[in-house]
Simulated assay, not measured.
Amino acid sequence: MTDTRERRLVDAFLAATGMVVGDYDVVEMLQTLVDDVAGIFAVDAVGILLADPQRRLEVAASTSEASAFLGLLQLEAGEGPCIESYETGRTVSVADRQEMRRRWTHFAEESERAGFASVHSIPLRSHTAVLGSMNLFRRAPGRLDDQDATAARALTDVASISILQQRSADQAARTRDQLQRALDSRIVIEQAKGFLAHTHQVDPDQAFTMLRGHARSAGRPLREVALAVVERRLAIPGPAPADAGR
């Protein structure tokens, strides 16, 4: 690599690792990645397919309409180098149109129509899962040289780490949100119990029974009923006197 390309590659790694340790948007990260790869390596278009939680692949980023189209084409056909790379977890490198035609006829036809003669597909993977694939299209035949292929693979590894970290962070955030909602609900319920206990001169257990009984009979969430009581939007009647009806 030339000094300029080396600097651009270092900058790409710095950008990717910066996203690992900070807040970022996954789509923006992937778009930055494909733009960097297209600018650094001897390729004409780059696209990324990413699997959703149900393992359905989608086009997540691309440098051109052509690369996005070829990604969608493979998804519709259920075959192609990008699909194979994702399904096997291995790099798939196709050096020319003849090899492409032999392996995926429809993809080869559309790829040739779009002006591409070779493709290099790299899985985005961790130790335990394949997340998608990054796909490098070239108008000229031939494989990526070993140095470029290694560097491109290293960038996809960083991207995979970033995506996994984001997914873990999202899960952790959801757990924190659920815990916080539960704690907030508990506070509101305790406030409602205290209000009912004071208003009707009952103990907290009786107040909670009144609160929960009203929520069940009304078919409303307990927190919602408690909040309405606290905000004075709902008046729950007190228990009937012990001698009522005699």
Rank of each mutant, 00 (worst) to 15 (best):
D52C: 10
D25H: 11
P141N: 07
W104P: 00
Q31C: 08
S185R: 13
P141G: 10
H120R: 01
V27M: 10
D96F: 06
T128L: 07
L33Q: 03
T150G: 12
H120K: 01
K193L: 00
Q74E: 13
E112N: 07
L144S: 07
R232Q: 12
G71Q: 05
D35F: 11
R220W: 04
A61T: 12
A60H: 07
A215R: 06
G194V: 10
G39C: 04
S64G: 05
F208Q: 11
I83N: 03
L73S: 11
A228N: 08
A42E: 09
G115W: 10
A68M: 06
S217W: 14
R167S: 12
E79D: 14
A77T: 15
I40Y: 05
L136Q: 07
L234T: 03
Q147T: 15
L179G: 08
N135I: 03
D96K: 07
L14C: 00
E87C: 01
Q171H: 15
Q147I: 14
E87D: 08
L234M: 06
D145P: 15
A207G: 13
C82S: 13
E190W: 05
A77E: 15
D11W: 00
I48L: 12
Y86T: 02
D35I: 05
W104I: 06
F41Q: 05
Q201H: 15
S85A: 11
E76D: 14
L222R: 03
I187H: 15
D36Q: 15
R90H: 01
R90K: 10
V188M: 03
Q98P: 04
V230L: 07
R101T: 09
L131S: 00
L196A: 07
D205A: 08
H200T: 05
L155I: 06
V225W: 02
G39N: 06
A240K: 11
